[in-house]
């Protein structure tokens, strides 16, 4: 073991940490304060627009995990299929967003919220009405630039921090 600078390196390093003491903190106290997520956030469960859905099943085929399950009734009404069951097992969902990209009728969107802890296992399976958009389940602008424009801008850490030479 050989020391090269006899302590000057450590003093230089301590000067950096000392200067750090006078910087503005850039952390957030999470449950009380929250940052705004990306406008394209791939959060929470899917948001499903039932009026546009034609039950074509493209989303189910695009899903790499096989999470989406669609049951349609045998008798089409008004020249379109009726969805009996649209089921998403979010326990297996990897939030890749490929189903949203695949949907040819813009009826499937990613969710915008991100706290998804549940008390019971069966609660992670979402069917029909649970997937409809509501005030509690906003849609994100993933793959939909017009929707993204309406959402609040993302908090960027880079706006908070300045380097001091």
């Amino acid at each position: 073991m050989k020391f090269e600078h006899f302590g000057t390196g450590i003093i230089k390093g301590l000067a950096v940490t000392l200067r750090h003491l006078f910087r503005k903190p850039i952390t957030t106290q999470y449950p009380e304060q929250k940052l705004t997520t990306s406008r394209r956030a791939r959060g929470n469960e899917l948001v499903w627009d039932i009026t546009k859905c034609t039950a074509c099943g493209t989303c189910a085929k695009a899903c790499p995990q096989g999470v989406i399950r669609i049951v349609t009734s045998a008798k089409p009404v008004e020249n379109r299929y009726v969805v009996e069951k649209f089921e998403v097992d979010t326990g297996y969902c990897i939030f890749c967003g490929l189903c949203v990209e695949a949907c040819p009728f813009q009826s499937l969107l990613m969710g915008y919220s991100y706290e998804r802890a549940k008390y019971r296992r069966h609660e992670v399976v979402h069917t029909n009405e649970m997937l409809l958009p509501s005030a509690k389940r906003p849609a994100s602008g993933y793959m939909y630039p017009k929707l993204a424009k309406a959402l609040p801008p993302q908090t960027l850490l880079i706006e908070r921090d300045e380097v001091k030479g």
Binding site: M1, E4, F6, G9, I10, V16
Partner: peptide, 12 residues
């Protein structure tokens, strides 16, 4: 670099 590059302990 100021914090680490010349730090004696890291070098040793």
């Amino acid at each position: 670099d100021r914090l680490l590059a010349e730090n004696e302990i890291l070098l040793a």
